[in-house]
């Protein structure tokens, strides 16, 4: 025998999954939505995504190389995920320099200052988006119309904004347009069906479990249903409003890809459900009575802040312990 024997404590097998593979799977799961978005808004989508990804990776590389001397982690694809998610939260017409600023906030401030992957308390892409939304409100809400969507029913507002400001009713667009993304909006949020495809892929690859996304959407639907009921609606509106709120805006993108972010979500399934209910409720509160038409990003960030608390008090059910 040529080699020395290797000795290590048990177990002697490791999973085929790896951090890089998980992150790569998330990127793959986002690809259908990117394709749909490109069809809807044109090549600008690819431009914004490319700038965002490149800037995120570059900032992470520079910070690790020159500021926090340590091992480089850009090969684990996590910066790419942040880049794509940030781009998905922007309008296609956004100037390139705003994208770069958003990437800087996401990577440098929201991720690396806390110690990098796994230690950030807030979702980096969302911190980037919210920063831009507050710093550049005009550019961030200038939604281009779908290139081949031959309608201007909403006069350039997102469906959520249109409904909020009373321009149109929740049923104006129709479920079909909401599903295939024939509406104004940020890159990622228009392609509902494609995002759901990504969700299925992530479930199949065992990257995430269904608990958080399904709970968020169910909470939102229930909330909308109750609101419709209380405001005296009846008939079609009882299901139109919940369906609209689940399909429009960033609900699917946020619940599948952002709320399930590992380091900013609770460690237990029960904790995850509490977290998800919180997101659903806060989102609906902002959408219905807040200053902004969309509340998903704020809701996720707010619940991110509660995660350490949830982790402290919600422990897994211990084997053999009866309460």
């Amino acid at each position: 025998m040529a080699n020395k024997l290797i000795v290590a404590p048990a177990p002697h097998v490791q999973t085929a999954q790896s951090t890089a593979r998980i992150m790569r799977d998330v990127v793959i799961a986002l690809m259908p939505a990117l394709v749909v978005s490109t069809i809807v808004f044109g090549v600008d989508v690819l431009r914004v995504t490319a700038i965002s990804v490149a800037a995120c990776v570059l900032f992470e590389f520079l910070i690790q190389k020159f500021l926090v001397r340590g091992s480089l982690t850009i090969s684990n694809w996590s910066a790419v995920v942040t880049g794509v998610l940030l781009a998905f939260n922007l309008p296609a017409s956004i100037p390139w320099w705003i994208v770069v600023i958003g990437a800087f906030v996401a990577i440098a401030i929201a991720k690396m200052t806390f110690g990098g992957l796994g230690k950030n308390p807030f979702n980096p892409a969302l911190v980037g988006r919210v920063f831009l939304l507050i710093a550049y409100p005009v550019q961030m809400t200038d939604w281009p119309l779908p290139v081949n969507g031959a309608f201007d029913a909403l006069s350039g507002a997102t469906p959520l904004a249109a409904v909020k400001h009373g321009i149109a009713g929740p049923d104006a667009l129709g479920v079909q347009n909401l599903l295939i993304g024939n509406m104004p909006g940020s890159l990622g949020e228009v392609a509902t069906l494609a995002l759901l495809l990504g969700f299925v892929y992530l479930l199949w690859r065992r990257v995430i479990t269904w608990h958080i996304p399904v709970t968020i959407l169910a909470t939102m639907a229930l909330f909308a249903f109750l609101v419709a009921l209380c405001s005296g609606e009846s008939g079609e509106m009882l299901w139109q409003l919940p369906l609209f709120h689940v399909l429009a805006g960033g609900a699917i993108l946020g619940s599948v890809f952002m709320a399930t972010d590992y380091s900013t979500s609770p460690m237990t399934v029960r904790g995850g459900v509490i977290f998800a209910v919180g997101i659903g409720v806060v989102t609906m509160l902002i959408r219905l009575w807040g200053a902004y038409p969309e509340g998903m990003s704020f809701a996720i960030l707010m619940m991110n802040a509660c995660v350490p608390l949830i982790n402290k008090y919600v422990k897994p059910k211990r084997f053999g312990v009866v309460k």
């Binding site: 020395k4 290797i6 000795v7 404590p9």
Partner: peptide
């Protein structure tokens, strides 16, 4: 001399 290789924590 080393006779085996430790690979644990």
């Amino acid at each position: 001399p080393r006779t085996n290789e430790y690979n644990g924590a």
